[in-house]
Design a binder for these strands. Structure first.
Lengths: 152, 152
DNA sequence: ATAATGTTGCAACTCAGTATCAAGAAGGAG
DNA sequence: CTCCTTCTTGATACTGAGTTGCAACATTAT
């Protein structure tokens, strides 16, 4: 008995095709990697995984496909507090925005949804007359484990 | 009659010296640029301004000084939604955290303080047992002017 | 003044991301 | 199915932000 799925696989592909974009073999491969990723991946991790499915994919194509997905609001770009280098991480845009918390000691990334965050966004739109397209709330600090365990 | 000042000039210098750090001529120059900046500056803008005061300052020293200030929690590093390139922007850490809104059309950066944001941070600390060191909430979208004026 | 230690400038480097352009693939018209 | 237009790709070279290693130098304590 299959678990309930929030989103069917191939959703990104369907989205792009419905917008009249060409569906190439490379794009299909990269989209499937993005869709099945369990963690936040950077461009080079994405490339490595895509190449396991099709070794002929170039890193330039990964960057171009990510730019395409960003432009269409289908993925979000994260910095995750630049814990290692300046690279970016990517995730499918969720139904509901969430907060990313990065532990400065162990590096763990935790996600958190909050009504207060939703209300804050509403306040920004109202009070500032600002039409929100994308938000990014990143928090750096120390997670529960690292607060209580011995210092490194 | 002088306007009330939130912070006296030289505050960053005093902070660093009180922490036992060496105060070199270059650091003093760079700190004064950071303190008197009216907008968010990136590293190369900071270098240019510092060089107007002392032409012998190297860009490496700017990066090192910024890293020092970050480590001591005296400046915050911003991405401002990476509107042009991947560079970072810097501002003195304010008394109270604020939100940065970036207009995707005109590029204007607006700052916004909010009780809801303060409460949200409190909720994160409590509910997630997460000790917050730094936060960054950036919002991309369209400002009031750009929403009402003719499309570009 | 002197010595110990931290800081600087220089040059070379790393690494993420971008531009160019000829060759190749997608998809519609016939 | 084939041809044609248009878009996409891969290879290569490039850009630009930020870092590293090291000898020379400046700061602070003594």
């Amino acid at each position: 008995m299959p678990l309930p799925q929030t989103e069917a696989p191939g959703r990104l592909q369907a989205e792009l095709m419905s917008r009249g974009l060409r569906m190439t073999h490379q794009r299909r491969t990269i989209l499937s990697v993005v869709e099945t990723a369990k963690q936040h991946l950077d461009a080079s991790q994405l490339l490595r995984r895509a190449r396991r499915l099709d070794p002929r994919i170039d890193r330039v194509t990964v960057y171009r496909t990510l730019a395409l997905l960003k432009r269409h609001g289908l993925v979000d770009e994260l910095d995750l507090m630049h814990m290692q280098g300046e690279k970016h991480y990517y995730e499918r845009r969720p139904q509901r925005d969430h907060i990313h918390m990065a532990c400065l000691r162990c590096g763990k990334i935790t996600e958190f949804e909050s009504d207060l965050f939703d209300r804050l966004k509403g306040q920004i739109q109202r009070d500032c007359q600002f039409h929100i397209v994308v938000t990014r709330l990143e928090v750096g600090g120390y997670c529960a484990q690292c607060r209580t365990s011995a210092p490194a």
